[in-house]
């Protein structure tokens, strides 16, 4: 029964993931970590890192979460529940695109959602920071990663790998 709730949770989370894969994080944290306790905050952070190591959108991290909780079937079901909302919504939108394009209701509500999800993600950054930044070196790694990703064209994948190596050397 838990697995059905898990798939359903991913399905509705992805219906509200508006503006890119990272927007999913506040919703995942609230449901998967805080509400159902399927993952600890620590494991949630590991899932983000592993999702970032693979090509493509971060949403594939749901397959990792599914595998971790329910095994291979959990991974397959997680992928289906993650991308099914996209397939349903986009094929409907594609059919009615020309009418949908100038729909002011969509435009104005999205102008509210876009800045709002930035606030949500900032709140998640704080809870993740409380978990991961425990001493001076981890603080330095966090700041260096931020600078590298925000101000250079360095791919986040390399930053995550580099931080892993640093961790192995330091601890």
């Amino acid at each position: 029964m838990a697995i059905v709730i898990f798939f359903w949770t991913l399905f509705y989370i992805n219906l509200f993931t508006i503006g890119g894969g990272f927007v999913m994080l506040p919703l995942l944290q609230s449901e998967i970590v805080d509400h159902y306790h399927w993952l600890t905050n620590k494991e949630f952070i590991d899932s983000i890192a592993i999702g970032q190591l693979t090509p493509g959108p971060l949403t594939i991290m749901n397959a990792f979460i599914g595998y971790k909780i329910f095994g291979f079937g959990g991974a397959i079901g997680a992928v289906v529940s993650t991308y099914l909302p996209s397939i349903l919504v986009v094929t409907i939108v594609s059919r009615y695109y020309l009418r949908f394009k100038n729909w002011w209701i969509v435009n104005s509500s999205f102008s509210g959602i876009r800045p709002a999800v930035i606030g949500l993600l900032a709140a998640v950054a704080i809870t993740l920071g409380r978990e991961s930044i425990i001493d001076l070196p981890t603080g330095a790694i966090a700041i260096a990663s931020f600078v590298a990703i925000a101000f250079t064209k360095l791919d986040p994948t390399f930053v995550i790998l580099g931080a892993g190596l640093l961790g192995a050397l330091l601890y």
Binding site: I45, Q52, L121, A125, L128, A142, S145, F146, L165, A168
Partner: peptide, 21 residues
């Protein structure tokens, strides 16, 4: 130990996404 470093980098990553958005 690796995951300790990686966890800190994830925080930097999420903050940089907030910054860019």
């Amino acid at each position: 130990s690796m995951l300790k470093g990686v966890g800190a980098a994830v925080v930097g990553l999420v903050v940089s996404v907030v910054f860019r958005m």
